[in-house]
Structures are given as C-alpha cells and as structure tokens.
Design a protein around this nucleic acid. Structure first.
Length: 552
RNA sequence: UGCCCGAUGGUGUAAUUGGCAACACGCUUGAUUUUGAUUCAAGAAAGUCCAGGUUCGAGCCCUGGUCGGGCAACCA
C-alpha cells in the first residue's frame, strides 16, 4: 500500500461534507468562451474533474456566456477540445444562456420582494454613487421606486424599449456595505447584441454575479470552486441563494496558478495573438493548452504537473522547470529515440570502403520491455555535431579530439586521425579510422570510451526543419514588473534551423513525439508536408555538461 | 483609510489537527551507463514573518503588529 497522500483543503471540505451525510458531489468547470484555455485552467479542470472522479459524482462543463460582445463559438469548440484532450469527460454540456428565462424569473422574484430596482442613472453616476472602499456610497435617486414601477420598467427593458446603457436592474442591498460587491450590484444590463447561442432573443443580459451562482444552484452544484479574486463575491453569492431560497451551492476559492517566464491572463494572451507576437493561440510558446499540445506536451504530463503544484490559498509562482520535469519524465518513457545532427561536422572514415554502407540496428527506447529497433544506414562519410569535436579540448571533455576515441551510438568506435581546416582556420572535416571489431552488439575490441555521440550518414540523411523554443519572456515574474509586459518578450523565443535527420524520420506523422538523442524531445508539427518535415522542440534534455561548461 | 484573504528550505506543497518540521522540483557529490539522458545512492538547504499569551509541550490555539495579495467594469 502506497502512503496515503495528504488532502488539500478542498478535499478536506468535501470529505467533511460527505461524512456529514451529503450523498455525492457535483462540480462544474465554468469557462467564459472568450479565449483559449491555458495552464491555469488546466489546474482548475484537474481540480474540479478530479474531485468528482475521486468522490463519486460528476462535473458539468458550463459556459459562462453572459456577455455576447466578447464570446464566440470558436472558443466554445476549442475549450471542448482542450478539456477532452486533457482527458476529462463532462456529464452535461451546459450554458448559462440556457438559463436566461429562469434567471429572468429570479430577477422578477427579487423585484417583487422589494430587493431589486431599475436604475436610470448613467454608468458614471452609478460608479460615483458606489463610493470607495474606505467611504460609503450614496443611494441612487431611483432606489425607492415601487414594485409595480420596477416590474414595468424591467419588462420594458426586456422588450427593447431602451437603448444600451439607459437603464440597469440593481439589487437593493446596502450602499454603505464594507464589501463593495454588496453596494447594490448591477444584475442586468441592456445590450442590443447578437448572442452566439440565443441570437437576438434577448437584449438584456445578466451580470456574472447574477448568473453564475444561480446557474450553480440550478445544476445542484455542491462545491463551486473558483479562484481567489472571487472571495469578495461569495457574500453576494450567498445572498442570492438566501433571498431566492434556492439550492445552496457553496463557493470555495483557491489560488490561481502563476508560472515563471509566462503569463496566465487571457486578455494579455489575446493581445499577443492580435499583435502577432506569436503565430496564434496554439503557438508552441503559448501557455495555452493548444499551445503546449502543439509543442509536444502530453496530457499525462500536464495532469501530473497539476497534481504536483497542489491546491492552496496563498499566492504562488511555480518554476517552469517543474513543468519541464513533468514532460521529460513522461516523454522519457514513451518517446522513441532518433538521431538528428543540428550543426554538422563532416567525418570521413578513411579505413571504411568507399561506396559501402550497412544498416545498423538502434534501440527505439532503451527502457522498453522488449526493446525494439530501427535500422540506421552507416557509411564512410558521416555527420556529427560540431560541438562534439574540439581541437584543443578542456580537461573533462570526453568527446572527439585529435588522437581521441569515441563511440558512435549503435555503431563503431572511431579515432580522430587528422583535422582538415579551411583558409580561415575553421575545421571543415575530421578524418578518422573506425574499429571494425567494435561494432555495437558484437564488440570484441575490449576498448572502453567515455563518450558516445549521435551521428547520421551523410549520404542518407534527410533535411528537416526544427523549431527551437525558449521562454516567452525574459523575466521570471511577470506579475511584478513595471510598464508594458511586451517589452519583456524574449526575442530568442523561437529559432528555426535546418538540420540533418536519420532517414527513418521520414515516416513520422503529425503529433509523433521523439527524443532526438542528446538534443531533446521533439514532435512533428502540423505544418509538415512530406517534402518538408517540421519538428517542434518540446523540451531539452537535462544537460550536466552544459552546466559544467558554464561553470568554466 | 475600510473590508476580505494569506504568510513553513530557492520554488511548491505537507505535518496523523497541540507531540522530534516531511515530500517533490531545483541545487551539490558519487556510482552505473553505447544518450554528459535515464537509473541509483548520498548531501546541502527552513526551525515555520515578528512580539506577547495559553500549555508539560505551539508551525498549528489566542491577542497585537509587520509584510504580501485582492476589492470601487453596464467583464468574468
């Protein structure tokens, strides 16, 4: 039995409720369809769906579509794709807009109870009347209207007798309340706008506060989980439930996910898209689910990540290296190994017959239970990484150098015999001898070498494009910067290279994930054509040597 | 100048609810290795924001501070 993992504070609440006799739980994931889902949403999705999976119950997918001017069907579709990709199934696909008739009835109820009124004030007047956090607001001059007049006016609002902004319906609570959200919050506003689902059926739309909690209640959601910025809304949330005498859903808040070197704000991400700082919502540098998916991240890795970051109420800034650890850990298990030379240096095997070649088997993944192999052509002329040769190597360098021997992965041990340079002194070719008796799998040479290099046969290699990504922003904490966040965009966040791949990669299909030996994890991008393969770098391998070099 | 949250190694999350502060990432060192990857082993790193109080005993409870975050969209 593995050690029982400790519960997060929401699980504790759920277990307490269950122990107190509650029969099961219902949660919901309530995105507004005005942008693509990002890693922060993944945390919420894993929490909400994870809870109902763990405690027996279900989770609804409910679109909070109460603002027709920013919401679109494109977003609805992408959100559904992303939730499914992450690996979760919702019980019901619902929309707050489904509840417009019911919500309208709720508004009528409040008016009849004398708890809501139509306000003719302008937006500015209402804002001014709100007061400030440290000073009370003032009652609207329209606050005292009779129930009949309010009913009539609200009816006229619904019928389209007024223009946008001319009137609103407000709750009648307390303009001096210490909680700003309780100072007669707006319930309904007029928007003569086309809604992605209800079309032109309505010209009044409920505000978030009047739609969200009641939607939870209608669905009998037991635990309505949201982020910390909604804490002050909870008092209002409960007020509606009490006054309307409806199912008592309960709201609980947790701290949203923040990550180093990136942003988790839909508004700012939209700006990056609109201003073409990235190629789209699914640009592999984006922290969106469609972005990390295209980058090659697996749903397993994302879920593992969400599990590891935990759930609590204090502000946090998760190091992006934790995310990278999670992908590496999963990809190490599932990605097939391939060899690709990024910056080629020609090797000529002077004792290997010209015109000859042979196929050498190489493991697809050394960790697989029965190890499987692919064939790699080997010949007299090869490419290795330019970094893997040094004419004057430092002490702990155990790659190729004059007089030194290295192993070519899955092939032979070679020894550097001669270095050829051009007029500028740049090494253009390295001549080596190979040890025929050192062939992988049947090595009788008895020689042990420290270094093993990846390589590709010059005559058999296929050119491919590789897109190498780095952090989107140069600063760690985007939340604590002054000025425009765009000035911190990393100009080096995308580097495109033409590189040399082993021929078996020609068979790859979009979405396939590989480990390019010693280089990193890559996946085939959808931009690929049979004539031109494009690979996205998912994440590099851990690199102790790079650290050593950096230390100097 | 109000109300509401929060504070535990560098980061994140725990601490059987009052009993020797643990786990993970990151970092360091060593072993293994036909990937300087993986794997394995070891280690450094907080005495729990501060000050009082309750208690045999406080990271947990109480009081008062300090610091950080949120709250005044006809956004969600």
């Amino acid at each position: 039995m593995p050690e029982e993992k400790s519960l997060n504070f929401i699980e504790e609440i759920v277990e307490r409720d269950l122990a107190a006799g509650q029969k099961g739980i219902i949660t919901r994931f309530p995105p507004e369809p005005n942008g693509y889902l990002h890693l922060g949403h993944a945390k919420s999705i894993c929490l909400n769906f994870g809870l109902s999976l763990k405690y027996g119950g279900y989770t609804n997918l409910r679109f909070d579509d109460t603002n027709p001017v920013t919401e679109e069907t494109e977003y609805v579709d992408s959100i559904k794709d992303d939730v499914r990709w992450l690996g979760f199934d919702w019980k019901n696909e619902l929309y707050a807009s489904d509840y417009f008739p019911q919500l309208y009835e709720f508004a009528l109820t409040l008016i009849r109870k004398g708890l809501a009124y139509v306000d003719d004030s302008t937006s500015d007047e209402i804002a001014a009347g709100k007061g400030t956090p440290t000073s009370p607001g003032k009652d609207s001059p329209f606050r005292g209207r009779s129930v009949e007049e309010n009913l009539s006016l609200f009816q006229q609002m619904k019928e389209g007798r007024f223009k946008d902004g001319e009137r609103v319906l407000r709750a009648k609570i307390d303009m001096a309340h210490t909680n700003m959200h309780m100072r007669d919050p707006i319930l309904y506003r007029i928007k003569h706008a086309h809604h992605h689902r209800t079309g032109d059926a309505w010209c009044i739309y409920p505000m978030y506060d009047f739609a969200h909690g009641q939607s939870d209640s209608i669905e009998k959601v037991t635990h309505s989980i949201c982020t910390l910025e909604f804490v002050p809304h909870r008092e209002l949330y409960d007020w509606f439930i009490e006054k309307l005498e409806i199912f008592p859903s309960r709201q609980y808040e947790f701290a949203r996910l923040n990550m180093t070197h990136t942003l988790m704000s839909k508004r700012k991400l939209l700006q990056l898209v609109n201003e073409n700082h990235v190629s789209g919502w699914d640009d592999p540098r984006m922290p969106t689910l469609s972005g990390v998916r295209r980058r090659g991240y697996t749903p397993e890795a994302i879920r593992d990540f969400c599990d590891r970051v935990g759930v609590a109420k204090r502000d946090n800034l998760i190091d992006i290296s934790l995310l990278e650890f999670c992908v590496r850990e999963h990809l190490n298990k599932v990605a097939q190994r391939r060899m690709v030379v990024f910056d080629p240096l020609k090797i000529v095997l002077i004792n290997y017959p010209e015109g000859q070649s042979e196929n050498l088997p190489s493991e697809n993944n050394p960790g697989d239970e029965p190890v499987t192999y692919r064939e790699m052509p080997f010949s007299r002329e090869l490419y290795i990484e330019r970094d893997d040769f040094m004419e004057h190597p430092p002490k702990k360098y155990f790659r190729l150098a004059p007089g030194q021997m290295v192993r070519l992965k899955s092939a032979y041990i070679i020894k550097c015999e001669e270095v050829i340079k051009d007029a500028a002194g740049t090494v253009t070719e390295v001549r080596c001898t190979y040890l025929p008796e050192s062939k992988s799998g049947s090595d009788t040479s008895g020689i042990q070498v420290k270094g093993t290099l990846h390589w590709v046969s010059a005559a058999h290699t296929i050119p491919v494009e590789v897109r190498i990504y780095d952090r989107l922003f140069t600063v760690e904490d985007l939340g604590s910067i002054e000025g425009d966040f765009r000035q911190y965009l990393n100009p080096q966040s995308l580097v495109v290279k033409k590189v040399f791949a082993e021929p078996s990669l020609a068979k790859a299909t979009a979405g396939d994930r590989f480990q390019f030996l010693r280089m990193g994890y890559y996946c085939l991008d959808e931009d690929s054509t049979p004539a031109k393969l494009v690979f996205n770098q998912t994440v590099t391998l851990r690199d102790m040597w790079a650290k050593e070099v950096k230390k100097g």
